[in-house]
């Protein structure tokens, strides 16, 4: 029982990480990254091959560096970032919104087919397995206590990443990203280098995708193409939309509701007699329904993006300016205030 709970805890924090990464891309910057799961996969595979020794028989894969945790995971995150650079250079400079989304979805399909069929890379359709479970030797863990410990490790990683993300999205960088999301032409006309900002957002988001993927492969010990069917991207989008795009706390709430309660909890329910696997399908349908209901009734999500009131530079807000006083303001003279009053 305890292990079930900690499995749920793991998925909660892991999808919190994944959703934060997608949130900076889509929620903050407006990049409709329908290839997101591809970056998760790159992170997972690269973490796998960075951590596995080069001599496991029966599997074909590149590298095999035998790096310990957390270096292997970091390697996965950085690899996902490297892929983001390539993807951004191909797509971001030329394409916007819907067109970008279409190209990204195609790219993720290409990547998927490639990994599925090109065995020397990540063992093809079989994927990687027997991926070493981190910390087991050092802490003397068994299969079950590993679940507890690794769920907690993931929680700590998620909190660190949340702290970092909160700083990034509240800094002037976050403001620039939101400006680009709302209107990239205007943002450009105000001096923002739109491509560079979007690239930064892609890089940060992909790092989160890679780390989330890296933790995923280590938790389960394996990763193969069925784990990242391109449709999986929409699960992360569901987390984001239910939680509330643009709000990091919302990502936690979304991960809790969608990933933990809707997707993983039912897996622990007893089977419906005579209909094995039915629960899983009901479950997928349920996610779709929840998504539709949310978009229909509360498109801003459960925890909507907040309007930022505080001055970003730590200066206290000034009191409301009294329009009557302004009428006599010497800087610009009375007519403005008078005219503005008149207009109301």
């Amino acid at each position: 029982m305890l292990y079930y709970v900690f499995t749920l805890v793991f998925f909660l924090f892991d999808y919190f990480i994944l959703a934060m990464g997608l949130n900076i891309q889509y929620g903050a910057t407006g990049i409709l990254n329908f290839a997101y799961i591809g970056f998760v996969a790159v992170g997972a595979y690269m973490t796998g091959v960075a951590g596995m020794p080069s001599n496991i028989t029966g599997q074909h894969y590149i590298l095999g560096l035998g790096l310990p945790f957390p270096l292997n995971t970091l390697f996965g995150g950085l690899s996902a970032m490297a892929m983001a650079v390539i993807v951004a250079l191909i797509t971001l400079r030329r394409l916007r919104t819907d067109y970008l989304a279409i190209v990204l979805i195609s790219l993720s399909l290409v990547l998927y087919d490639f990994c599925n069929n090109f065995v020397p890379l990540f063992n093809g359709a079989d994927g990687l397995y027997n991926v070493p479970a981190p910390l087991t030797k050092a802490l003397g863990l068994n299969v079950n206590s590993f679940i507890v410990v690794f769920a907690c490790v993931t929680g700590v990683v998620a909190l660190i990443l949340w702290f970092v993300m909160a700083r990034v999205t509240n800094a002037p960088l976050g403001r620039s990203l939101r400006a680009i999301r709302d209107d990239s032409t205007v943002a450009g006309a105000l001096g923002k280098d739109v491509f560079r900002m979007q690239l930064k957002s892609m890089l940060i988001g992909s790092f989160y995708a890679g780390i989330g993927g890296g933790l995923l492969i280590q938790f389960g010990g394996s990763f193969n193409p069925t784990a990242w069917l391109p449709g999986e991207t929409f699960v992360v989008f569901a987390v984001l939309i239910v939680g509330g795009a643009g709000n990091n706390i919302g990502m936690f709430v979304g991960a809790l509701l969608v990933e933990t309660l809707l997707i993983h909890l039912p897996a622990f329910l007893p089977e419906i007699p005579g209909h094995p696997g039915l629960i899983e399908y009901i479950d997928s349908a349920l996610v779709g329904i929840v998504l539709m209901v949310m978009l229909w009734t509360r498109p801003q999500g459960i925890v909507p993006e907040r309007v930022r009131r505080a001055v970003t530079f730590g200066v206290p807000d000034r009191p409301e300016i009294d329009a009557r006083e302004l009428g006599s303001a010497e800087v610009l003279g009375a007519p403005v205030a008078a005219a503005t009053e008149g207009a109301k």
Binding site: P172, R175, S176, R178, A179, R181, D182, D183, V186, A187, L190, G191, K192, G246, E305, V307, R308, R309, V311, T312
Partner: peptide
Amino acid sequence: DNVFKRMSVRENLEVGGFV
């Protein structure tokens, strides 16, 4: 469509103050 609609008035101004 010349303002950032989902940002506050103040934030809109902050975006303009890049220089």
